[in-house]
Nucleic acid binder design. Structure first.
Lengths: 197, 197
DNA sequence: CTCCCTACTTACCAAATGGTAAGACGTCAA
DNA sequence: TTGACGTCTTACCATTTGGTAAGTAGGGAG
């Protein structure tokens, strides 16, 4: 039961932090949502900062697990790149909390202790950049060029990943559903044209 | 002097809201930074929410002014698209506050009164989507496909626009400076390959 | 039965939050 | 001179914040 409570706290905290940001959520709000007092929460996690850290840590662990499990096979760098990025897009759709929270980290880690928000990005970026660099088009390009191309594709994915509420608000659910359904193949087209020689 | 104080408050508020988010900034923090009391600030703006609204409103006005001034000329839709998006990229580089604040709005407007965060997006998106749709490649495409392509390019730009602190933190200022300097032409390449037939 | 540990509660606390009330100070028009 | 106005200050206020202290309930080990 202990582990269950911890997990429920982490689940709720992840969702609320993703929705409202670190300062937009009080530990009391997290606790009452699962019928606990904030002191029970503090008993488990010590402080709000530590709870937030645990949320990020859990996301990080899931991320790395997912990364090692979904190593794209095949030796064509283009296909591997497409597979990796489409997988990322799928994750953003299935677990929108994660990209919301990571986007907030991207915005906040100037102020916060600059280390916590970048654990996941560096190895991930490096892998992706290598795939792009292995592509025929970028074979002779500089590292900076391959990196920029990678980051542009990542931006296309992640920006869309945090846009659902806004786009639904502007265009309605019907239109958004169509966009979201089409997005993966549109994305694949962009990736292929970006690395096409 | 009155207008000057108002402007100074708005400038500071814009910067701090962009840096730390709505809940991360207190009106006292904004006021003390220009040697005022928070009551003087409240005298000018009534409430924190109203101040935030005024900050967004001013950004909106600048945005529309900029939009009407920088109407890309020429009748080639590809060139107009390239010009518009490169202009946006330049703005993100020159005034990083703006894209930071707008990205926070994108994350927050699920919770906030859904209207305030979308004033700028709809007409802007429509203009860009029309340019993409006018492109040879998207002439026969559906509206959804043109929209998705537009949004992907926008994502590539805006995601990079909020990444400076993180990328500098990971790779250092030297590397980031090179990436940033190269980014416009890399972006132009991506746009052209995205709408190339 | 007792001891101890984990899980959780009630009762606090100091600090900070957004906001109100009332007044001081200067300026400017009548 | 007077009265009104805009600008800003000091003095408050209720509420919420993250966090501490102390104690209760229950289960398992000796």
């Amino acid at each position: 039961m202990a582990e269950d409570t911890r997990t429920r706290i982490l689940d709720t905290a992840e969702r609320l932090f993703a929705d409202r940001g670190f300062y937009g959520v009080s530990i009391a709000a997290i606790a009452t949502e699962i019928d606990l007092t904030k002191q029970a929460l503090l008993h488990h996690f010590g402080s709000k900062e530590k709870l937030y850290g645990e949320v990020l840590k859990r996301i990080s662990q899931r991320f790395e697990l997912d990364l090692s499990k979904a190593q794209p096979s095949g030796d064509d760098p283009v296909e591997r790149l497409v597979a990796s990025l489409l997988h990322l897009q799928t994750r953003n759709t299935d677990q929108p909390n994660v990209i919301h929270l990571l986007m907030r980290e991207l915005l906040d880690n100037k102020r916060r202790a600059d280390t916590v928000g970048t654990w996941y990005l560096e190895p991930f970026l490096e892998r992706l950049t290598c795939m792009v660099a292995a592509t025929p088009k970028y074979n002779d390009a500089t590292l900076e060029e391959a990196f920029a191309a990678t980051y542009q594709l990542l931006g296309a994915i992640n920006y869309f990943g945090v846009s659902q509420p806004t786009l639904t608000g502007i265009y309605g659910e019907r239109f958004y559903a169509k966009i979201e359904a089409d997005f993966p193949q549109q994305l694949e087209a962009l990736i292929r044209s970006a690395v096409a020689p």
